[in-house]
């Protein structure tokens, strides 16, 4: 997720978009007319049109034309309508990429969330050094993905990796983490879980801070142990925050390219090719950029991301209203 997460695990800032702002009297804004406000916002509007809207229009344009390299230079690509989309969806790789995306996203999310939550609960009680240790947990999230990706690739190297030599000490034979189609997905998911734990930890930890300590004291007086307290207080009260963490994680994990590309390039035998990787590879992974199908895959990915994105935004809004 990265936030790249990361990246991938990049957290979305979302400063209360729907929060009702106190209505100010008309014309009583600070310092003048609405034209002044528009002038301050103008650079952003121009920016969004030029660097968001236009690239997106270009990517739609790519997906409904047949852009080969020559057409790209001359700018006379043939209009083909939805042909690229039909080709992509009926390709045998589509099912596999979609399934890989599901496995990658849910495999990552479940473990990131469970481990993040366990750590958040663990760090909730302020023991000595807890602040410093918690800060250190942010490290994986702050590192450039290329750094984490290459570190994991070397650790999981079949012949010389530390993971295999550790496992050998327990009599487990060599596992070809990144070079066997059976384990490659597990390998990239492990790396991605590692990348996503900090994000989950920070968000869930701050969610825990909003649960009143009185509740725990009352529960303790009633004889509830830590386990019981977790399931009767922490988990239910944390549900809204959990939902938001997971949905946001989902949207961000869907578009992960870096970590998979760096570790496996989507291979071997497409075993780690997610939709995002497929799109990236068609466009930039080979010497011959094949932008039209790549854009079609990418636009399908946008639609999926936006569906979950809107669910997230609705949930967020509902939570603010309550």
């Amino acid at each position: 997720m990265t936030i790249s997460a990361a990246p991938a695990v990049l957290p979305a800032p979302d400063p209360k978009p729907g929060a009702p702002r106190p209505r100010r009297p008309k014309g009583g804004g600070l310092g003048g007319s609405r034209w002044v406000a528009a002038a301050f916002a103008a650079p952003l509007l121009v920016y969004l049109l030029a660097f968001y809207a236009y690239p997106l229009i270009r990517s739609i344009d790519l997906s409904i034309h047949d852009y080969n390299v020559r057409a790209f230079v001359q700018g006379n690509a043939e209009f083909v309508g939805l042909k690229n989309y039909i080709d992509v969806i009926s390709s045998p790789l589509f099912g596999q990429a979609a399934w890989n995306t599901v496995v990658f996203v849910f495999g990552s999310l479940i473990f990131q969330y469970v481990l993040g939550l366990a750590l958040a609960v663990f760090f909730r009680s302020n023991f000595r050094l807890s602040g410093i240790l918690r800060a250190l947990f942010l490290v994986p999230w702050l590192l450039p993905l290329i750094v984490s990706g290459s570190a994991w690739a070397w650790m999981l190297n079949s012949d010389n990796g530390i993971v295999n030599s550790f496992l050998q000490a327990f009599g487990i034979g060599q596992i070809n983490w990144l070079t066997s189609p059976d384990t490659s997905m597990i390998a990239v998911i492990i790396a991605n879980i590692w990348l996503g734990i900090p994000f989950n930890l920070v968000i869930l930890y701050s969610g825990l801070q909003n649960i009143s300590p009185d509740l725990y004291e009352a529960a303790a007086l009633d004889g509830a142990g830590p386990w019981r307290q977790f399931w009767s207080i922490t988990f239910p009260l944390l549900r809204p925050v959990s939902a938001i963490t997971l949905l946001l994680g989902l949207v961000y994990t869907l578009k992960v390219v870096d970590i998979i590309w760096i570790m496996t390039s989507g291979g071997p035998a497409n075993s780690t090719t997610t939709l995002a990787i497929w799109s990236y590879r068609e466009a930039f992974g080979t010497g011959q950029p094949d932008l039209s199908p790549a854009a079609a895959v990418g636009n399908i990915l946008i639609v999926i991301a936006l569906i979950f994105g809107f669910i997230y935004l609705r949930m967020q809004r509902r939570q603010e209203q309550s």
């Binding site: 979305a12 968001y52 578009k255």
Partner: peptide
């Protein structure tokens, strides 16, 4: 709202758009 949605657009799609431009 537009900004929130903008953050959800996959980087690879933006990269393609930028590439074409």
């Amino acid at each position: 709202f537009v900004l929130l949605v903008a953050q959800m657009i996959p980087g690879v799609v933006m990269a393609m758009g930028f590439y074409a431009i």
